[in-house]
Amino acid sequence: MTPEADEMVAVELAINGKPTHLVVRPDETLLFVLRDSIGLTGTKGACLEGECGSCTLLLNGAPVNSCLVLAAQVHGGRVETIEGLAHGDKLHVLQRKFIESGAAQCGYCTPGLIMAAKALLDETPNPDEETFFRGMEGNICRCTGYTSICEAIRGAAREWSR
């Protein structure tokens, strides 16, 4: 059980509901594999140290920083990315609210924010302020400021709890 150092690893996982088989290097991050090996570039990298949340996606329903998760660790897991959110032409309510509230300016933090917000509202459809911050505090927006983003998420929450 001591094969070559750079032996590749086979990983079975579901990406946006689709069973996927990947062969990855042990040290490749999930972010890198999604973006550069299979072209799901909706998930963004920005700090590559878990500080900004741009790379947030859902692993088994919970938000994680895909820049810090090794792809090989995700074996057997369920991955949801921004690409899996809309149904055909129909935007997810968070996506729609982000547009309506002007919450996506440069748009770079948007996919990560939307995924973090989805995790938050999946668990707590109508969060109080502390829960809201706990759910969103790992995502940084440099450009839009947080006001319209909070409005978008709150707007989505209103529809969510209906």
Partner: peptide, 27 residues
């Protein structure tokens, strides 16, 4: 050994660490 990777992978991404292999504890 790697668990959350929130220390290790940060160091890897900074180019400060290149482990030869991993013992994944998350499973």
């Amino acid at each position: 050994p790697i668990a959350g990777g929130t220390d290790i992978v940060v160091a890897m991404n900074r180019g400060q660490l290149r482990p030869a292999g991993f013992l994944d504890l998350t499973h």
